[in-house]
Simulated scan of single mutants.
Amino acid sequence: MSLPLRRAVAEFVGTAFLVVAVVGSGIMASRLSPADPGLALLENSLATGAALVALIVALQPISASFNPVVTLVERALGVIGTMTAVSLVAAQILGGLLGTVLANLMFGLDAVSASGHERNGPGLWLGEVIATLGLLLVVFGTVRSGRADRVAFAVGGYIAGAYWFTSSTSFANPAVTIARTLTDTFAGIAPASAPGFILAQLAGGALGFLLVRLLYPSIATRAAAAADREVLL
């Protein structure tokens, strides 16, 4: 199997498991703590953060972004090529959709059920901008400072925390946002609310790109070389 295909498969599988963790733990939390939304959110955030650590550790040697915004910034920084970025984003979106279907089925729900959980308003959109900006700073700051072996723990910890300090509970991921429109459960988001979240995430991604370039101005030679190799594969 070629490297580009292996990367796409890794992103598909990783994003699917990530969404299973987000949606599945949300359903479980709402059933275990139906009268305490704060406790349910704690359970949801801890499960998501822990799953992220495990998935990134397992798949990082191949590809472990699980997030179109991260992939687009990698492309903008010259770390990956255009065709690779397109294939990874497609794999992330499809993997996320599968993850929601699997989570719904595991808990005896319809495979697909449009969410009725509306999430709108400037405060929530600002929360998504901040959540995504912070995620990119954590990801690329950790990698570019030569500590790529710690990125799984940094990202898992950040997302678990951002569930609590952002008004939007930190979706910070267009693929996960799209996937969460298909579950009418604790973790769901109404389809009509998704575009606002995705636009805010893309805005956060653009700001994150600028901040990464400001704080870490030089692109690593090995990253540029990796991008060159992708053109030949």
Rank of each mutant, 00 (worst) to 15 (best):
N67D: 10
N67I: 01
P68F: 08
P68R: 08
P68Q: 08
V69Q: 11
V69W: 02
V70Q: 09
V70P: 14
V70L: 12
T71Y: 01
T71I: 02
T71M: 01
T71D: 03
L72W: 05
L72Y: 04
V73Y: 00
V73I: 08
E74A: 14
E74C: 10
E74V: 05
R75K: 12
A76L: 13
V79Q: 08
I80E: 10
I80S: 07
T82V: 12
T82D: 11
T82F: 15
T82M: 13
T84F: 05
T84M: 08
A85E: 00
V86D: 15
V86G: 12
V86P: 14
L88D: 10
V89N: 00
V89M: 08
A90M: 15
A90Y: 09
A90E: 07
Q92T: 12
Q92G: 15
I93H: 01
I93Y: 07
L94M: 12
G95E: 01
G95Y: 03
G96Y: 12
G96H: 07
L97R: 04
L97W: 13
L98T: 11
G99D: 02
T100N: 02
T100D: 00
V101R: 03
L102N: 07
A103C: 03
A103H: 00
N104M: 01
N104R: 03
N104I: 06
N104P: 06
L105P: 05
M106A: 14
M106W: 14
F107N: 00
F107C: 00
L109R: 15
L109G: 08
D110F: 10
D110N: 14
D110P: 13
A111M: 05
A111N: 10
V112L: 14
V112S: 07
V112H: 01
A114N: 04
A114F: 15
S115H: 04
S115E: 10
S115R: 03
G116Y: 09
H117W: 03
H117M: 12
E118S: 11
E118Q: 12
R119S: 14
R119D: 13
N120H: 15
G121T: 09
G121W: 04
P122I: 02
P122T: 02
P122V: 09
G123Y: 01
G123E: 05
W125M: 14
L126K: 02
E128C: 10
V129I: 09
I130G: 11
I130K: 01
T132H: 13
T132M: 07
T132P: 15
L133S: 02
L133F: 13
G134I: 02
G134D: 02
G134Q: 00
G134L: 01
L135S: 03
L135V: 06
L135N: 06
L136D: 09
V138Q: 03
V138M: 09
